[in-house]
Design a protein around this nucleic acid. Structure first.
Lengths: 245, 245
DNA sequence: CGGGTATTTGACGACTGTCAACGCCAGTGG
DNA sequence: CCACTGGCGTTGACAGTCGTCAAATACCCG
């Protein structure tokens, strides 16, 4: 599918059991999953994982790195739909769907674990609640999409960018990827990608980032963002941090 | 929940079997469904079916009329997410979800059939492929949401409005609700609702509709729209009619 | 060090929102 | 039957956000 994708390898060096966030297959399915899972892939930064419209043969759990889900527009531009972080499950398409509804590419170098959709469907037969689990993952993705629609349709550029950053901050925090002081977050997205997620041009994204910096909300450096006051950023973004689990 | 909702009645006057588009419960589940289904509700135009954040006790199949799914914004405005047409299944939220991710209200007078979420979950245990069916409904909704995100983020007001109309045209056509000549479609949405769906203000929606009329794409009258050339409208909207089934 | 990618900035214009006012129409009550 | 009333649609003037075009700068990788 993409020359940047390295050949499949068995997951021996990265066994499923070590991935606390592996969403799809809970402990009870592990033996089953081990036998059905096909391979682990390593993706170079910018490599395509799957393309919009392609036959959905595989679904993936992200082990490491960031992915971006996107949708192409006929004018050549691209709308970012969602950033996938380690532990997220992407690319699942139930049977009557004949093509991926979106594309996915690696923002950073990334490692994914691939499942055949066919195997997942078979596993849903054997394990009733796996179906509910996948249904739940879909529902969470739906809620995120609805939130994005609200943002794209109603919020200003400043609020949309603040929202993307605030949400990523909390998703990273839940994974322990925010530093001790809670002000510095890794941020491998380019300004162009941030604009794709927020429906803005790269130029305007840059201007808004400057304004956010001047207003003291955040300082976007190379590959990371400093946030002096997360609460204030969330307030601007109208983002409600989820209840700590 | 809403004073405009009429008291529940049994479905005797509107048996499930007559609804060809009833998506959730295929023929094989009908006996089961009849016993579990609680009631049929009639909604007045503008009545709320369920509210964002409320405990998701019920899910609904729309029998007649139009619904609009929406999400409230903190500034008091509202983002339209999707129009539900007869046969559509709305409001399903899997177990870990504690509140509806969006609200729904009746655009026109409407009749829905209500299922307890609890019963649906139980039915998914007994009927394996019902789970897949619901998963598939979710996936179609996801694809629609992704398409909307692309529109809200990348398309002009003219294209977005054209898209909503073109999509509704084809969904109505599939239900046989377009007249013989294929140019006149029912359209109960107010311009304000159309603006909510497209992320526009009512005023600008009106201006764009005028421009679409001047350019010969459509004539929006009271409760209906005339489309002289559907193909040209779809081209403007960048809408691909689904393969005729 | 060189070349490509990413960021930054300015000037300008188009698109869309805001505010305000008016007209149209259907339903209501006298 | 008619006046009233509220919702919806329409239009104008104006402002602000955001996109486009262009160019310069900064940064990374080889």
């Amino acid at each position: 599918m993409n020359e940047m994708r390295s050949p499949p390898t068995r997951c021996n060096d990265c066994p499923i059991r070590e991935k606390a966030l592996f969403q799809v297959v809970a402990d009870r399915y592990l033996a089953d999953a081990e036998s059905r899972r096909t391979a682990q892939y390593s993706l170079a930064a910018r490599a395509t994982l799957y393309q919009e419209g392609a036959p959905p043969t595989m679904a993936y759990t992200l082990f490491s790195g960031w992915l971006m889900l996107y949708r192409n527009h006929s004018d050549g531009s691209r709308q970012g739909l969602r950033i996938a972080l380690p532990g997220d499950f992407v690319g699942y398409m139930p049977v009557p769907i004949s093509g991926y509804s979106h594309g996915a590419f690696a923002v950073t170098q990334a490692v994914v674990c691939a499942f055949r959709q066919h195997d997942l469907h078979a596993m849903m037969e054997d394990h009733v609640d796996l179906a509910r689990h996948i249904t739940s993952i879909q529902a969470h993705y739906i809620a995120a999409c609805e939130t994005s629609m609200l943002g794209l349709g109603r919020k200003s550029a400043k609020e949309r960018i603040a929202y993307v950053v605030a949400e990523l901050y909390h998703r990273l925090a839940a994974r322990g990827e925010i530093d001790r002081e809670g002000q510095l977050m890794p941020f491998p997205l380019t300004q162009e990608m941030l604009g794709e997620l927020t429906g803005l041009t790269p130029v305007h994204t840059n201007r808004v980032l400057r304004k956010l910096r001047l207003d003291g909300f955040m300082t976007a450096e190379r590959h990371r963002i400093h946030i002096p006051d997360v609460g204030r950023l969330c307030e601007l973004a109208d983002y409600e941090p989820p209840e700590a689990a």
